[in-house]
Each structure stands twice: as C-alpha cells, then as structure tokens.
Nucleic acid binder design. Structure first.
Length: 547
RNA sequence: GGCGGCGUAGCUCAGUUGGUUAGAGCGAGGGAUUCAUAAGCCCUAGGUCGUAGGUUCGAGUCCUACCGCCGCUACCA
C-alpha cells in the first residue's frame, strides 16, 4: 500500500499532541481514539526514559458555542466548563495520562495568540483586506467556491441560495509560503506528513499554489481572541485553535519542548495542520524573539471509524458514544478498549469498522488467549515446580543441547522485540509495534510447547537443570514482553508487575514518571528467587471457548 | 472534470529497487498434546494476485486501456 517511513525523534524528549476538541461536541469514539493513540505513544516514550509531553484540550471559541450556551441559558464559560470537563472525564476513564489540558478560552492561551499575531501584523505577514465569498446566512459561514458551485450556489445545509458577500478582515499571506513549504514537504527531513498518501495529497495541492487566507472574522462578542489593534475583529477559530500547540509550551519551563514531534490528527483536518499551521510557524519563526519557533516534525493523519460499514454522523445518530466504550471497559477492563483501538483502528488511509464483536474478539485472541494465558501457564508451572520463585538460569553445559538451543532462540527473540517495537513506534506504526510485542508472547508459547517443561517435571532430578532453565527463560521473556505491552495495556501489565515483584516499575511510571526501558528490558532481569505469583486471570475470556 | 490511491485466500490485510513452489492474523477444517483462561502448538486454504493487452529471459511488483471502489479538490472543529 504505502511505505512506512521512520521519523527520527529527538532522543531525550517527545512532544505529542491531539487536536483540541470542539467543545460543543459530546465525546465519542473518534475523540477517544486519537487521544488513546497519543497516550500509547506518550507512554512508550516515557517508558523509554524520555522527557515526554502529551497535550490535548478543547477548542472553545466558536460562535456556535455562544449559541449553544445561550440556548441553555448559560454563559459560554459555564457551557464550555461543563463540556471540557466531560472530555477530561472520558479521557481519564480510559487511562489516558495527558500532561496538560489546554482550553482556548484560558487566559494563558488568549494572551499568547495575541502575542503571535502582533508581530505578524507588523511584518505584513498578516494584512487587512477584503474577503469576498459565498455566504450561507443560515449557517453563518462562508462556503468554499468549489463547493458552492457544486451545490449550485445553494446552501449545502438548508438549500437556500447563497449570498455573495464581502467582508473586511485580516489575511495571512499563505501564498508566500507555498515554495518553501513544498521544498520542506518534498525533503521530509525537517517537517513531514504521514501516511504517504496523505502527504501526496498535500503536496499536490500546494503545488497548485496557495491563496492567502482570511484569519479573522468581523465582530467580537467577548468570546474569542480579539485581533490586536482591531478589537472589532475576532481571530478565526481555526487559527486560534492551531496556536494551542505552541501556546501550551510557550513558557520558560516548557519552551524547550518545542517543536512538537507528532501532531496526531484525523484526516479531515489535514489541510490546517499540514499547510496553514507550518506556514504560520515559518512566518512566526522569522520574527525577532521567536526564532525558537520551528516546524513540528510530523503531522500524522489517521482515518475514520465507521460503524458496521456506515459513516458515523450526527444525522444518522450512530456515533459510538463514550458511554458505550465505558460499558466494554467495565466488562473487560480499560485495557480491552485501549488494545482494540490501538491495534485495530484506522491508523492508515483506510477507514476502520467498529463493532462490539471485533472489540471482544481482539481482547480474547490477544489479551486473554495470548498474554494472559501465557502468564498464567508460566506462573502455574513456577508455582508447582519451583515454589513460586523464578529459578536462576543454569549454565548451558548443565542442560541438554535441545534445551540450550531453544533457550538461545527465545533469548534472541527477546532481544529483537524491543528493537522492533521501538522502531515501529518511531514510525507511528502502532499496530506494528504492538504486534511485535505480542509476537514475543507467541514465542514464549511456542517455547513452552517445544521444551515441554510439564513433561520434564515428571522425569525427576535428572532433568532439573533443564526445567529450571526453561522456566527462567519463559519468565524472563514474559517480563520483557510485559514492558513492551505496557503502553497499550497499562492496567493489566501493572497487575502483572505486582506479581513478579516489580512494583517499582509501576511506581516509577506513575504520575507521568519515566522508565528505563533499555535497562528493564535487557535480558537477565530475573537472577533467580523473584516471585512469579499466580493470580486470577489478568484478562478473563469474554467469549466462549472454541469447540 | 483535475490530481492521487486502491482492487491479493471466507474476513482484515503484508507483499523491498520485477526473479526459486504468492505470505500473516482472524475464521473454518484436521492432528498430536495437556502446563495454562475449553487456552496453547502443528498441519490444511489448491487464491485466474479486478479485466484485457503490452514490455521483459521472467511481473502481484513496470506500461496502456477498461471495470469497480475510495481520497483530495482550501476555510462545517
């Protein structure tokens, strides 16, 4: 389909963002999806020991927010407070640990948007002009020329004729940045867009040339960011919203975090993130005192969820609500939801189908029958034959050649896995990263089948060294696999760590702390004598068994 | 209309710069086991690689046409 490209991130830090969500929306699958992906990435980089910053938030400055508030007899502030809280709440429910939650209505943000606009006005990157376009009075918005023509100059919503309207507002000189942007996109080493198909779309459009874009709206009703020096104008919400990525880290304590490593978005807002935002940053970076403002390294646009083949939309009313996801989380644990989103979602250019059955199937196949069962069988073996303690490894000379060979191969697989997982995560190939982690679990299952410790146990002391080597290796490989799986299924893995006497890892990573993956995931963490306790299934099967 | 992409086993998809018998996961069928969450492991899919041509010693992998599907075509977050 397309070639994945590895993006090399700064080694010691990682900054990932989600879009800030429209505060008039109720949180649904789409929001939880993007945010979960960001959380998985952020957790991986934290685990790897990097200074990680994961930002999400809400976009609040739209005229419709004021309307929605008025309709409910609330102030925009109160309405936004309630809905922003709803977003925060649903994210918390799925184990998402963002480092900050920015709201565009916050003073820290508004103040900085003004601070970014002022120098651009001064330099002429932003200039006053006249915008003429097809206006949909019912929607109170302009309709793009192409779209207006396609609709025979009638409102796509109401069907009423569109009005030709002229408005005085401020423009961003986007046209000036087409060439530099194209060069950057084609090189792809400083600023990049992924997946490749999305990048191609952007390049094709930028190649056709760019028009200047209006970035303000006439009128200011106290909700929004006033244009500096022109208090009767409001900064267009999109421009306002994009600035959040920068404004959130534009403090002495955080400025070093910029540029963002990944802006994770859905494909519908690619244009703003892949063209307008970088152009704005290029312009900003030229202003005195703002040279630290560089381009984000990567804009990654995933696709949409569909439900049983049908697009989710307000008109169909078929959104997968957060409440619905919560039911799955209650039945199977949050990890089940996270795992499904992270491994089966529309990460590439194709839309992905959501169904309850596929969520449960993913949980059963990978978590219950996979990781959970492997942990269970190894824990039971250790409980029965080595008193619940991980045996110390034995010298190869003490075991048969067959045992030694199998052990060597498992150890090699455990060495390859962290490398494969890391490089997949670097390429935002979350499916690939988690598949690589799960592959190590499969290796353990194959290893157990091949070496059959349950048979050796019956052969008495003669095979004791083999038995101990086998159990040590199986435990060790699962220990390493658990680290690699943690970003996606932190709850179950934390429980597992408790059983193997590694609560310290959970402690280190708690409260957004950092780990030391290179050290933790290296072979030899178990020296012998550690617990590997049995316990209730980490991921109890939901479906019935086979046969 | 323009630009771009896709169409590979029942399902979801991998298939490097063209080269031995086209792969994985899930599902389905079969088998040997029994430590484990009726889990795990092994074997099996005889797939016209959308269709028709072409280039080549050789094409799923390049070219052309056609059929079907999809994305983008600038300001709805």
């Amino acid at each position: 389909m397309e070639k994945r490209r590895t993006h090399t991130f700064a080694r010691d830090r990682f900054y990932v963002t989600t879009p800030i969500y429209y505060v008039n929306d109720r949180p649904h699958l789409g929001h939880v999806y993007t945010t979960t992906l960001a959380d998985v990435l952020a957790r991986f980089h934290r685990l790897a020991g990097r200074e990680t910053f994961f930002l999400t938030g809400t976009d609040e400055h739209a005229g419709k927010v004021v309307e929605a508030a008025e309709a409910r007899g609330l102030t925009p502030r109160a309405w936004a407070d309630a809905n922003a809280a709803a977003f925060r709440g649903s994210f918390e429910r799925f184990g998402i640990e963002n480092d900050d939650f920015i709201r565009t209505s916050e003073a820290r943000h508004i103040e900085r948007v003004k601070r970014y606009l002022a120098p651009l006005l001064e330099s002429g990157d932003v200039y006053p002009g006249e915008y003429e376009g097809w206006y949909d009075a019912g929607q109170e918005e302009y309709v793009a020329d192409g779209r207006a023509a396609a609709n025979e100059f009638r409102s796509p919503v109401s069907g009423r004729p569109l009005l030709r309207r002229t408005e005085r507002n401020y423009f961003f000189r986007l046209s000036a940045w087409a060439e530099p942007l194209l060069a950057l996109l084609e090189a792809g080493d400083v600023f990049d867009v992924a997946p490749a198909a999305r990048k191609n779309e952007v390049i094709a459009r930028v190649r056709d040339g760019l028009d200047d874009v209006p970035i303000s709206r006439a009128g200011f009703d106290g909700w929004g960011v006033p244009v500096p020096g022109e208090p009767g104008h409001t900064v267009y919400v999109w421009i306002d919203a994009l600035c959040n990525y920068l404004s959130a880290v534009d403090t002495d304590a955080r400025r070093h975090l910029w540029p963002a490593d990944v802006h994770l978005i859905a494909k519908d807002i690619l244009w703003f993130h892949a063209v307008i935002w970088p152009a704005l940053l290029l312009a900003l970076g030229r202003r005195p005192g703002l040279q630290w403002v560089r381009l984000p390294r990567l804009v990654y646009a995933h696709s949409f969820w569909v439900r049983e083949g049908a697009k989710m939309s307000k008109s169909l009313g078929n959104f997968v609500e957060t409440e619905h996801l919560s039911e799955h989380a209650e039945a199977l644990g949050v990890d089940a939801v996270r795992w499904f989103l992270a491994t089966r979602g529309p990460l590439g250019t194709a839309d992905g189908d959501f169904s309850d059955a596929s969520l449960i199937a993913a949980h059963d196949a990978d978590l219950a029958n996979g990781f959970g069962n492997a942990v269970s069988r190894v824990a039971a073996a250790i409980a029965r034959w080595t008193d619940g303690r991980v045996p110390a490894p034995r010298a190869e000379a003490e075991t048969t050649d067959e045992t030694a060979a199998a052990a060597r191969e498992l150890r090699a697989a455990a060495g390859r896995a962290p490398v494969a997982v890391a490089s997949a995560f670097e390429a935002i190939d979350i499916h690939g990263a988690l598949a690589a982690a799960l592959e190590l679990v499969r290796e353990v299952d194959r290893f157990v089948e091949r070496t059959a410790p349950f048979r050796l146990a019956k052969e008495g002391p003669a095979r004791r060294a083999d038995l101990e080597t086998i159990l040590h290796h199986a435990a060790e490989a699962l220990r390493i696999a658990s680290l690699l799986l943690w970003p996606a299924i932190p709850a179950g893995v934390a429980t597992f760590w408790g059983r193997i006497g590694r609560d310290e890892w959970g402690d280190a990573l708690a409260d957004r702390g950092r780990g030391d993956l290179a050290c933790w995931a290296s072979w030899g963490g178990f020296v012998g004598g550690e617990p590997f306790a049995k316990g209730p299934p980490l991921f109890p099967r939901a479906g019935s068994g086979r046969r």
